[in-house]
Design a protein around this nucleic acid. Structure first.
Lengths: 343, 343
DNA sequence: TTGAAAGCGCTAACAG
DNA sequence: CTGTTAGCGCTTTCAA
């Protein structure tokens, strides 16, 4: 067994509760000397408070759970977001416990993640973009477990990006650069609200500028499915064919996500189209990135804010669980880089 | 307060310890009827065991900590690895608590992560590729806290990939395809053992085949530093220039990592060199991937095994903390895809 | 087959 | 300023 408070108290010749108070920063009622003795004893013995005992007594776990899918399409785990969440929790002397659900568990109405089955966190962050099982959210409400949703467009207890704004922002940026022949490219895929919203943001900006929106959807194989059959991917040829057929009518392309943007960049190079001098490319994304030796012009999400806001909201929710908190909608910013060029 | 065992026991008209035993699967000494009553009561009341109380009493947290850097170069967080770790822990009814250190904390010899300062986990997984501060590992040993290192090449208590083998494997694959003019490309960067080992694996395979290893190191800007100045990246031009100058002497390139491979693919397209018909590209990596609409031929790590092995080792370590466990070295496999072609 | 008693390590409420 | 008493929710031990 590890060093306990009792041993520290004995060593410092004081009662256990006194040692507890002192080590928790409430020692100002004790003498300078006693404080010193206790601190010293704790240090020499290598005392580490047992968080389980503390939680058992105080009724607070000082822990937050993060629930997500193991399917990248349902719950993309942004490392930056995760870091921001952890940093913010760390400030509050709380920790993060992770839990993921497999697709099978996800659809099984009887399955409950450990974090819901057992009492172990003060609140939950739920990073499910869509398809969050209703029986689970019902259960969470029923438990009155404080929870904040991330990336889900709900009216309350939720933090999510303004995807319409992001879509419009990217288009406006291309328009400001003087582009008129701007196409919008997306691959077939899941139906998260970001998909329609970004496209509508683009459409809105084009109409505002008196231009006709040009939108194309191409078939793809989801990049994470490459495991299944690496040889069968023909995404590139779809993009290349489209680009070849339309190159005269295009000076710029806005893509739904980095996935389309990367393929497009590669296809353009294959077609001998130089980016950015002959073709500008901009995408909506989470963070700025440089996948191919060229920095992508992109809208980026304030992921750090997002994590902080989510944690702040959760803290409020934990303090007053019954009160619903108005959803926070976050705006992206446009980060110009090396794939766009004025016309 | 949530539903407690006491309430369940009252409802089922039995003592608290009896209810505890029954709900923990040790109810075979009780009558069928009693078992049923307790289970029923727990269900209708929505009982969730308080893990803090259980841990306080049993002395086991049933929790594992994951310590990493927030710097992607020191501790790349593979989502697949993380998932495998979580899944394995989930099987054992344990959970994962995350902790990251910032670079500043990392270099501050006085800083201790919460997980070490406080007693809250039964063991730790440490995902630091290099530069793990000595005062921290000393501290961990001193605490006798069971710990397993991931990605660190230590003799004991460690799981890491055989990078030499991976480097050799990729080269051998190209050789089998009939390539002779095989160059090895890497960008300047940190000095993890994977860097030299992979290169030496390549070198070894080339020498075995009676060929001269051709190795080039090009300058780069770390892809994660794009935030700092997105416009200043000239990685692509370095690769393009190198490729142009050497295209006649190259039929295949092996790259240190996907980062080089992506840039190379893009550079080749820019030069009008078709992959794979005119240039084969293979890389060492963690997982197979398709970043640009073309599936990359790559060595891949058994990340799922890696997570499982790490957890298994940690469980052993927790059971017998004093015993050192021989390090487990994992071999990659070669996954051919769309970027390689027989000559 | 069941219950009572004890205690994990800690914090909170009081009394002195 | 300091100690005593009590108890968080649970598991373990022992007696019946």
């Amino acid at each position: 067994m590890a060093v306990t408070l009792k041993e520290v108290a004995q060593q410092a010749q004081i009662s256990v509760p006194a040692a507890s108070l002192i080590l928790n920063g409430k020692g100002d009622i004790y003498s300078k000397d006693t404080n010193e003795r206790v601190q010293q004893a704790a240090r020499t013995l290598g005392y580490r408070p047992n968080l389980a005992a503390r939680a058992a007594r105080s009724g607070k776990f000082n822990a937050v759970g993060l629930l997500m899918s193991d399917h990248p399409a349902y719950s993309r785990l942004s490392v930056k977001l995760l870091q921001s969440v952890m940093a913010k929790l760390s400030d509050k002397e709380m920790h993060l416990t992770m839990s993921q659900m497999t697709d099978a568990q996800f659809t099984d109405s009887k399955f409950l993640p450990r974090m819901l089955r057992q009492h172990m966190v003060d609140g939950m962050l739920i990073n499910y973009t869509h398809h969050f099982p209703e029986h689970l959210s019902d259960f969470i409400h029923q438990l009155k477990l404080p929870a904040i949703w991330i990336n889900a467009r709900l009216d309350h207890d939720s933090v999510y990006p303004d995807e319409f704004h992001a879509g419009r922002l990217a288009a406006q940026y291309l328009l400001e650069l003087g582009h008129r022949k701007i196409h919008y490219l997306e691959f077939e895929g899941s139906v998260h609200y970001s998909r329609t919203d970004r496209r509508e943001g683009y459409t809105h900006a084009m109409m505002e500028a008196g231009l006709t929106p040009m939108h194309v959807t191409l078939p793809t194989q989801f990049p994470d499915q490459v495991d299944l059959d690496p040889m069968s991917c023909d995404t590139l040829s779809h993009v290349t064919n489209w680009l070849k057929a339309n190159r005269d009518q295009i000076t710029a392309v806005q893509t739904h996500s980095p996935w389309e943007a990367r393929v497009l960049l590669y296809a353009a190079a294959k077609c001998g189209l130089d980016v950015p001098s002959e073709l500008s490319v901009v995408t909506n994304g989470n963070e700025s990135f440089n996948f191919m030796g060229i920095a992508m012009s992109s809208t980026v999400l304030p992921l750090t804010d997002m994590g902080q806001v989510a944690v702040e909201m959760l803290m409020k929710k934990i303090a007053t669980p019954q009160k619903r908190i108005r959803a926070k909608v976050l705006e992206s910013t446009m980060v110009p880089a090396q794939t766009t060029h004025a016309i």
